[in-house]
Design a protein around this nucleic acid. Structure first.
Length: 277
DNA sequence: AGCCAGGACAAGT
DNA sequence: ACTTGTCATGGC
């Protein structure tokens, strides 16, 4: 486990490839928000976390126990991102994207939260995804203090009907959420069964579920099941790849196991160039 | 005001 | 194997 020190009740770690504004606002998660002093706060695995970078240090506001049990892994602190960026920087475009995105880390999110969140993401913009998910958590999650709520369990949502989600204003995605909640709650799909599978095999498996196609499946696997080579292609990635690699693009050939991180650099950089971030 | 959004799906070429 | 229409909603 990565080294840390305790100062003023906060976990202090080196801010190596650790920029909260990138990590929490690059479109991989939807539940963290910035406050006045530049700290990003949210809830993951039912626990509150606040993270801030000051110079070359990152200050984490959470208990030592939560750090050890949850956030150390959540923040992917054992991975060498500098080496990954160097491997990803294999042409001018990826070099620019990786340099611009230095500080991003791929969070190891809860499988169900990632699954549910990216079902809600389809044909939707990030701002609205955030608002729908906040309503979902406020209505069906548990209060964890400070007016914050946990992400509701699959078991909880499995007891509901799509109409019960009407206040979320999630549109046609509501029945997909309920269906997925029941699949998870009743054990028809688990993260554990996906882990030993190839990423392509796991994509096929997730695509058997209602309302899940290649893109959502890839996001779930990358962000919620540790499949680092998953390479989600949404409308932004389509544009970027068409512009920079008109002859076609093979993410595994280009990036191998770094494909997921490379995708996130390209996604974020492309949205920046479009003035979206 | 209208275009578009981290798509999926069925139906049509 | 590709293209198109439809789905529900609101951020910008």
């Amino acid at each position: 486990m990565a080294d840390y020190i305790l100062r003023d009740g906060k976990i202090v770690i080196p801010a190596v490839d650790f920029e909260p504004s990138l990590i929490f606002d690059c479109g991989q998660c939807f539940r963290f928000t910035p406050d006045e002093d530049g700290a990003w706060s949210g809830v993951a695995f039912g626990r509150k976390l606040s993270a801030r970078r000051v110079g070359d240090e990152a200050l984490l506001d959470c208990s030592e126990r939560d750090f050890a049990e949850i956030f150390h892994r959540y923040l992917d602190l054992d991975r060498d991102y500098a080496s990954a960026r160097a491997r990803i920087s294999n042409d001018d475009f990826t070099r620019e994207a990786a340099a611009f995105g230095a500080g991003i880390r791929i969070l190891n999110q809860d499988f169900w939260e990632a699954l549910c969140s990216f079902i809600l993401s389809q044909c939707n913009n990030i701002a609205r995804i955030r608002s729908i998910i906040e309503r979902l958590c406020g209505m069906f999650g548990d209060e964890v203090g400070g007016g914050k709520y946990s992400f509701p369990s699959a078991e909880k949502l499995a007891t509901l009907e799509p109409d019960d989600l009407a206040p979320l204003r999630a549109g046609y995605r509501a029945p997909y959420v309920i269906s997925a909640a029941r699949d998870v709650a009743e054990g028809r799909i688990t993260a554990e069964e996906l882990l030993p599978m190839s990423t392509e095999g796991a994509i096929k498996r997730l695509c058997e579920m209602q309302g899940i196609g290649r893109k959502v499946a890839s996001c779930v696997l990358l962000f919620g099941a540790g499949k680092r080579d998953a390479f989600p292609i949404d409308v932004w990635m389509k544009r970027a790849l068409a512009e920079h690699y008109p002859a076609g693009f093979d993410p595994m050939a280009a990036f191998g196991e770094d494909a997921g991180l490379a995708q996130q650099y390209i996604f974020h950089y492309t949205r920046h160039l479009a003035d979206k971030v």
